[in-house]
Simulated scan of single mutants.
Amino acid sequence: MVKALVYDIRDLACPLPSKIFIDTNAWLLWGYAPFSLPGTGHQRATHYTDYMANLVGAQKSLYRSAFCLPEIAHVVEDDQLSTYNQGKPKQTGRKEARGILNLRRKVATSVVATWRTVEQVSLPSIGIMVDDGLAQSALARFGQQKLDGYDLFIVEEVLLSGFPILTDDADYISVTGLCVFTANDRAIQEAGAAARLRTVYPPTGT
């Protein structure tokens, strides 16, 4: 069920919020070359990079969550390992791969480079206290909404800030109180069918 308000960034008239959180997947499309460069198979990348460039050009404030860093590291490691294993009869596992010096250096270099690119165009969020109270809130949210483990803390941080979020993850539309900016077809179609698609920000109705 769609609980968030949704904005289609493919629409040239899509508003540019003065402050906006950027989700991990959008940061990867912006700053990780194997995902952001043309011809990489990430067909929606240009929607996000163009929209983010418009935000930066209009001097809007983009916010990064520290929780995005471990997720970026996880995705980059998976991607680099997949490339390393391509065409090999014996597949190297994640733990074993960390002991292969050249591969580990490549992964680490890619993670650092991606994060430095993120830092160049964004501000750090105020953050949230990671304690048992947050864990209990995250557990409750996990049972009620379609979120993975990485998203749980990011959602708590975004809701606390009151800012919208730019993401390619359709799961975020299940969260009450969020304003989701996206180019995800499924998210946009479901929001339209549920009358949760908006064109004005801040929203004039719920």
Rank of each mutant, 00 (worst) to 15 (best):
F153W: 08
G99D: 09
D78V: 14
V118C: 11
A193Y: 04
Q86T: 12
F153Q: 10
Y7V: 03
K106D: 13
E157P: 08
G162D: 03
T199K: 08
Y32S: 02
T206E: 14
A113D: 15
Y51M: 07
I22N: 00
S137A: 15
D79K: 14
T204N: 11
Y201Q: 01
K19V: 06
S125F: 09
I20T: 04
N54S: 12
T167A: 05
R10W: 01
F67G: 07
I9N: 04
T167W: 09
E156V: 04
L81V: 05
E190M: 15
L197K: 02
W27M: 00
R116N: 13
A191L: 04
P34G: 01
F67S: 15
L197T: 10
G127N: 02
A187C: 09
L16S: 02
V56D: 03
L197G: 05
R98Y: 03
G149P: 14
G41Y: 06
D168R: 13
T92V: 14
W27A: 00
Q144K: 13
A53C: 06
D169P: 02
K90D: 07
A33T: 09
A194M: 06
A26Y: 01
L147A: 06
T49M: 04
S174M: 07
A66S: 12
P202N: 01
L166E: 05
A33I: 12
W27P: 04
E119P: 12
Y51Q: 04
R10V: 00
A58H: 07
I100K: 09
G192V: 12
I154E: 13
F181Q: 07
V107F: 10
P203W: 01
T109D: 15
V56R: 03
G192K: 11
C179F: 12
A191Y: 04
A13P: 06
A53S: 11
S122V: 07
G127F: 01
W30I: 02
P34Q: 00
D131P: 08
A53E: 08
T182F: 11
D151F: 07
H42F: 10
R186V: 10
T92G: 10
W115M: 06
Y7N: 06
I126T: 10
D169L: 00
L178T: 02
A183Q: 04
T182A: 11
P70K: 00
C179Q: 15
N184S: 12
T117K: 11
I20P: 02
H74N: 14
V107D: 05
G41S: 03
R141W: 09
I188Y: 09
S61C: 10
W27R: 07
D185Q: 11
L37F: 13
T49E: 03
D148N: 11
C68H: 07
H74K: 15
S161K: 09
P38S: 01
S36I: 03
Q80K: 14
S110A: 10
Q43A: 15
T49G: 05
R104M: 10
D11R: 09
Q136D: 13
N184R: 12
G99A: 08
I100R: 05
F181V: 02
K3P: 05
I188R: 09
D23F: 02
V118F: 02
V175R: 08
T117M: 13
D168A: 14
M129P: 15
K106W: 11
T204C: 12
P203M: 01
E119S: 05
G143Q: 10
L166N: 05
T204F: 10
T109A: 14
G205F: 06
T49Q: 08
E77V: 09
G149S: 14
